[in-house]
Every structure is written in structure tokens, then in C-alpha cells.
Nucleic acid binder design. Structure first.
Lengths: 201, 201
DNA sequence: TGCTATAGAACGAATGTTCGTTCTAGTCAT
DNA sequence: ATGACTAGAACGAACATTCGTTCTATAGCA
């Protein structure tokens, strides 16, 4: 019984990848509980034995998938925060990234943003307290400190700034919005920024 | 085999209510798939036979619960739209209602707003195309037509206006926000309104 | 008032199925 | 030939659902 730790060498295993890709598709399309191990076997072409060898149990698949996607998203946000100095630019880049990512990898985005992980990963902290979401709050706090955004509760301002765009992402993932998200970027960003920008600047 | 249609006379049956209340609590706390019929039996004090007599199957419970809550929410929003003439007042009243409702009936609010109904009610339309959400979009469309809000895509403006407050509701339901939602009302509303109001007025 | 008939509601043991998981056997690279 | 990996049959628990029954209440009739 080797271990299903999210080791980087194991993460690169092609078998692991095939399983994670299949699981992402199935979990996103029909949900974790509607997805049976045999489904993952069929879709991935990996046998039951291999799956249990690599992931330990069904939760282990979801856990690895979640960690994988969270890491990718956090890396992207970290790069944004590192390259851009001002809070406004950071926030805009984050929204742009979310919009592009939702088009490029809708399944991954749906699994990250509109899944109740607690129902099948009871030990994971809620996504709102994960690193990517902490970064969003940090951007807002810095924006307030720098005088780019008006003063107020960071949580409320973060909700006001990112709530609209995140809502659009959800609508698009639910196939309610007809056009690709980036075509809404300018309008959505203008509205979002109006909600928080410092007018006394 | 009598029928579990959402008849109003049946809806008032105390047995039905007990089951729906128990189901709401369990579905909200641990999710639909983590809730077994025996759990509902224990919590409601109603027997398996009775449950199947009234609801037909497990989905039927969720379906009845969903319809019940949707009807309540739509009634509240309809009353708001009927009593208040201007779009701004309507939108503010809607946000106020959502905030109060999330404190008064957190389980019901969580079941309505942060549950992936499609996973266990595959035939129901997504919540975004339900009557309450249509009313929110209507408010925005009227706001644009009346010149209260600036021009733009109604979907984007609706997301900008209600996205922030809805995000706060979600944070509060996930126990991330420390204080009751109504204490954030003024600040959240000011930010939300800034995002959409017509500055050329 | 009593007796019978009928209907719907409530009950829970029994059923058949599905699912996650285990186990044993086999493969392949080193 | 050893250890990492793959394979899929077999297992047992848990689940939604069924079904035969009992309980309760109302109605019809004398």
C-alpha cells in the first residue's frame, strides 16, 4: 500500500493524470455521488486495482483533483500579484484570468467554483478560506491601504469587487450566458470597479 | 398509488410538513446524497411507508421541498415588486430580504442558493432561470429603461448589482462572516448600487 | 345508537441492487 | 527475482424501494 500523498513525482504519472482527467469530467458533469468507480474505470481506461493503488479510496481521487486544481489556480494568482504592482491592475488581471480560464477549462473551473466540496471532502477547509481566495482578499486590503479603493470592510469590498464577475462565470458555466466571458470583460470590470474605487482620489 | 402532486391541501398535511422540515435540515447540513431515508425517518418521526406514500420516491421529497421554497421566495419578491415603484427601491428591498432571510432561515436559504439541484433533480431547470431570479433581472431591465441605472447588458448589470450581496450571503452561510448580514446591509448596498447607478442622472 | 364497509394513512420487515473496497493473480521493468 | 504497477472477479455493507399489513376515520344503513 504505497501512499496517495500529492507527491509531485506521482502527480506526473500518466496513469494518475488519466484518472484525474476522467474524474474531473465525470464529477463536473454529473457530480461526485452520481459517479461510480466503474464509470471512472471506463472513461479513463485504468483498472480498479490501479486506481486504488494510486489514490487509496474514492475520496482520494477527489482530494488529489482538488489539490491539483487549487495549486494551478493559486500559481496563476501568485504570478499576477507578483508581476503587477497596483491593486486595481491585480484585480483586473484576476477577473481576466477567471474569465479566460472558465472558457479554456470549464470543467475545472466548475469543479473549483460551484461544487460543494464539503459534502464529499469533509476534512477540507471551505474554498473561501483557501489560498486563491485569500489572495483576492489581500488584493482588496492592499487596495484600501494604498488609497485605490475606498475605505470599508475588506470582506464586503471583496464581495462587491469579485461577486459580480464570479456570478457571471457561474452563469456562463450553467450555459445561461450566450457569449464567451471575455466579451463581457470590459463592461463587467467597469461595473465592479465602480463599486469599490476611491472617488475622492 | 395516490399522487404526490404539490396540491395545496396535501401541502398543509402535518406529516408532509414534518418530512419536509427534516429533509431540509438534513439536505442542507450534509447534502442530499449523504442523507439516507432512515435518517429522514428518525428526524421526522414519520415511517418509511408514509414517506413513500406522500412523496413517491426520494427525489419526490427534494422536488416538493424545492417547489415549496421557490414558491415562498417568489411570493416575497412579487410582493416587493408590487409595493415599490422604482427599480432602486425594489433592488434594495430584495437585498434586504435576502439578508434577513439568510439569518431567519439559513437552511432554506442555503438549500435554495448554494445547492447543485441538477445533481439530484435532473429534470428541474437551473435555479438561475427560475421565477425569483427572473424577477431580479426584470428589476434591472426596468431600472435601465427608467434611466435609474446606466445602460448595458441586463445580465451583466444584474450580476454586478446582486452578485456582491449574494456572495456575502454565501460567505455568511459558510460561517465565514462573523456578524449577521443585516449589519452589512448599508455598506454592501452602497457598493452594489455604485456599480450600476446612472451617474449622468 | 350500533354494525359494516370503504378509503386513505401509517407502518416496517424484506428485497434486490448498487457501490466502494478488498483480494489474489499476473505483468513488466530493472 | 524483486518491487512497482495493473487487472478484474468477488465481497459485504448500505441503499432506495416494495409490499402486505395494521390503524384511523368517515360514511351508509338499520
Amino acid at each position: 500500500m504505497s501512499h496517495p500523498v500529492p507527491d509531485l513525482t506521482q502527480a506526473a504519472s500518466p496513469t494518475r493524470r488519466r484518472v484525474l482527467d476522467a474524474a474531473l469530467a465525470l464529477f463536473s458533469e454529473q457530480g461526485y455521488f452520481n459517479t461510480a468507480i466503474p464509470h471512472i474505470v471506463k472513461r479513463s481506461g485504468v483498472s480498479i486495482g490501479s486506481i486504488y493503488h494510486h489514490f487509496g479510496d474514492k475520496q482520494g481521487i477527489a482530494r488529489a483533483l482538488y489539490a491539483d486544481l487549487l495549486e494551478g489556480m493559486d500559481g496563476a494568482l501568485a504570478a499576477i500579484c507578483h508581476q503587477i504592482p497596483d491593486a486595481r491592475g491585480q484585480a483586473l488581471a484576476v477577473v481576466e484570468y477567471l474569465f479566460e480560464q472558465a472558457e479554456r477549462a470549464p470543467l475545472a473551473t466548475a469543479f473549483m467554483l460551484s461544487t460543494r466540496h464539503r459534502e464529499f471532502l469533509p476534512d477540507e477547509p471551505p474554498i473561501c478560506s483557501s489560498q486563491p481566495f485569500n489572495r483576492m482578499r489581500d488584493i482588496v486590503s492592499r487596495g484600501i491601504a494604498r488609497g485605490e479603493m475606498h475605505d470599508g470592510d475588506p470582506a464586503v469590498l471583496a464581495a462587491a469587487l469579485f461577486g459580480g464577475p464570479l456570478r457571471l462565470v457561474q452563469l456562463r458555466l450553467d450555459h445561461i450566458l450566450p457569449r464567451p466571458l471575455p466579451t463581457y470583460l470590459v463592461e463587467a470590470w467597469e461595473a465592479a470597479w465602480l463599486a469599490v474605487c476611491n472617488t475622492r482620489g
